[in-house]
Design a protein around this nucleic acid. Structure first.
Lengths: 155, 155
DNA sequence: AAACAATAGTTGCAAAAATCAATTATTGTT
DNA sequence: AACAATAATTGATTTTTGCAACTATTGTTT
């Protein structure tokens, strides 16, 4: 296990990723007057509209009861639509309103601005390698972590 | 700005890092009967012993009042030593007890086991590149400050 | 078709945690 | 000596979380 010591460094880097990114998300969310979890909801709904609450909870690794209340707030704020699914009325169908879309866009730009600054610190000729490596890690992570449920009943 | 679309993918990957890693940390902490923040405290104290509460709060991007209570619990659990600093008695000096060290080790192994599984999904001949890239990203992240806020979306 | 089980979502409630101001103790400064 | 500044804690209020109970709808069994 000569590589094992390297995992210590890898963990350290990941820990920093998490901390810095968490900090960023907090900033972006606060600018929009919402919580971090709510910004994740907007993000996920932007990517996968018309998802159910249950599937969203699985994606975000959170409890349905907490999520239900967070969504409730976003509905009250006018940022999320929540309608019963006509095909199976136990489900709800969640989507972004125009305003929700706007906030989601704002946060996305916020994050991407930060990332562009990060990459400006990396020599241009290494960018491609970084992108590739991140993709490699993404697929490796996905095949290691517990899988999320997909295929929502509607849509 | 031609690279901008790539940042979307980068954000996506980072978001997954954060989510999966957060999940992991929750698991490791729960195994030890402590909260996630408390596991971070143990981690940081393992790396930088004899730190003050204030400096720890800065490292963890958290409030001193919350942190004080979390530390208080860890002291009660017998995992953290908290002594007034003889050089400046406004400060406290935090460090791990033997039991705290043990928990910190357990969590570290937990994480490293996971990471070794992740890397087992990556072809051996790419490991070196991944390690290198992570280091590159680490230094880039560290030398990047949080972005200045633009004006938040209306409403 | 009626009865029963299973599922999605919501709500109630108690515990945990975050937040912000006030307080104490110590050190630095004028 | 008096005052300002800092580290840490504590109080009090509000948020958030977690678990269980509950409602409504759909699937299944007989």
């Amino acid at each position: 296990m000569k590589e094992n010591s390297r995992y210590v460094a890898v963990r350290e880097v990941f820990q920093q990723f998490v901390r810095i990114f968490g900090q960023l998300q907090r900033g972006g969310a606060q600018d929009c007057g919402i919580s971090v979890i709510q910004s994740h909801i907007l993000y996920e709904l932007g990517k996968r509209p018309n998802i159910s609450l249950n599937d969203l909870a699985a994606l975000l690794h959170t409890d349905t009861s907490s999520l239900s209340r967070q969504v409730q707030q976003l509905v009250e704020y006018g940022q999320v639509n929540r309608l019963p699914d006509p095909k199976d009325r136990r489900y709800v169908v969640l989507s972004l309103t125009a305003e929700g879309e706007q906030k989601q866009q704002y946060i996305a730009e916020f994050m991407e601005t930060f990332l562009s600054e990060v990459f400006s610190k990396i020599p241009e000729d290494q960018h491609e390698q970084v992108f590739q490596t991140l993709e490699v890690m993404k697929t490796a992570l996905n095949s290691t972590s517990s899988p999320c449920r997909k295929e929502p009943p509607s849509s």
